[in-house]
């Protein structure tokens, strides 16, 4: 027997069936009508390993943002220790959901940006509003090449005057701002809960830091309950305007869950009684 795995070949089609080249529509190898070289180049048509919602809310002296630590490969939990909120420079934190390989690409871009910025003789020029503009341009540029970065991004931090910035950027290069923001499933599950606390800029003044953190924690719990691609460990980012500080706490656990109702659930893949 040749012990070099390289010569073992693919699993036999007799045993395992034909290899499905259409997994994730990422290949055109089985198209018999045309050769590979004739076929148009193909780009990402769907994300592979994904991160779920990022949520954020403004309070009277800052912003609270959260995103869980899971990377899902379909319904499989591929990664369970993935920090998706990253600090960029001294005045911004970026929360990224969607495709994880594209997230890592963005992480590298932002890192390069930070290095480039540190070459300048002035210090700390990477303000949150500049970053959100930059990311919007990157996302729009990629969608214009019909090869989008499959992410939704929330940028939180301070501008040049120390004022709060909270912006959402998506894979089409669309950006918008609001006192409560969420990506993905959070748009359906968390936004209604967040808007109960803060519906407009006026309401922001009424919400304290403690209440904001509690609201976000509650939202993360609801998301863990109801979003089947979420996880009970998350990072919590607290931004404070008065001290111009950005703190990211890792491995925060969802607390106070009750699962005793679960035994009464029937259907949904659990055998009917």
């Amino acid at each position: 027997m040749n012990h070099d795995p390289f010569h073992w070949g693919r699993p036999s089609a007799d045993t395992y069936g034909e290899y499905n080249y259409n997994i994730a529509h990422a290949s055109n190898a089985d198209r018999s009508t045309s050769t590979n070289s004739e076929f148009p180049r193909m780009h990402t048509q769907q994300p592979m390993i994904t991160g779920t919602s990022v949520i954020a809310i403004k309070y009277n002296d800052g912003i609270v943002m959260a995103a869980d630590h899971m990377g899902s490969f379909g319904s499989l939990m591929k990664l369970d220790d993935l920090q998706r909120i990253i600090p960029v420079g001294k005045s911004a934190a970026v929360g990224i959901s969607g495709d994880i390989s594209d997230f890592q690409y963005l992480e590298r871009l932002l890192d390069d940006l930070e290095i480039e910025d540190s070459y300048d003789m002035e210090s700390d020029n990477l303000k949150a509003d500049y970053l959100s503009e930059y990311l919007t341009r990157v996302m729009y540029n990629r969608r214009s090449k019909m090869n989008p970065l499959w992410n939704a991004i929330i940028v939180a931090g301070f501008d040049g005057k120390g004022e709060l910035v909270l912006k959402h950027v998506d894979l089409l290069g669309v950006s918008y701002s609001s006192p409560t923001l969420a990506t993905g499933f959070g748009n359906h599950l968390a936004i209604p809960l967040l808007r109960k606390k803060v519906d407009s800029e006026e309401d922001v003044k009424k919400l304290s830091k403690e209440d904001a953190i509690q609201t976000v924690k509650d939202c993360m719990k609801v998301l863990f309950y109801r979003d089947a691609r979420s996880w009970n460990k998350y990072s919590l980012c607290v931004i404070e305007k008065s001290t111009q500080s950005i703190e990211i706490e890792k491995d925060v656990a969802v607390e106070g869950m009750r699962w005793d109702f679960a035994q009464h659930i029937t259907g949904y893949g659990i055998p009917q009684l």
């Binding site: 300048d120 002035e122 020029n125 509003d129 500049y130 503009e133 930059y134 341009r137």
Partner: peptide
């Protein structure tokens, strides 16, 4: 202006 929505800083410009 286009990429960062940031006016070019003077020191960056002259350097």
């Amino acid at each position: 202006k286009m990429v960062f929505n940031r006016p070019l800083s003077l020191s960056k410009a002259v350097h």
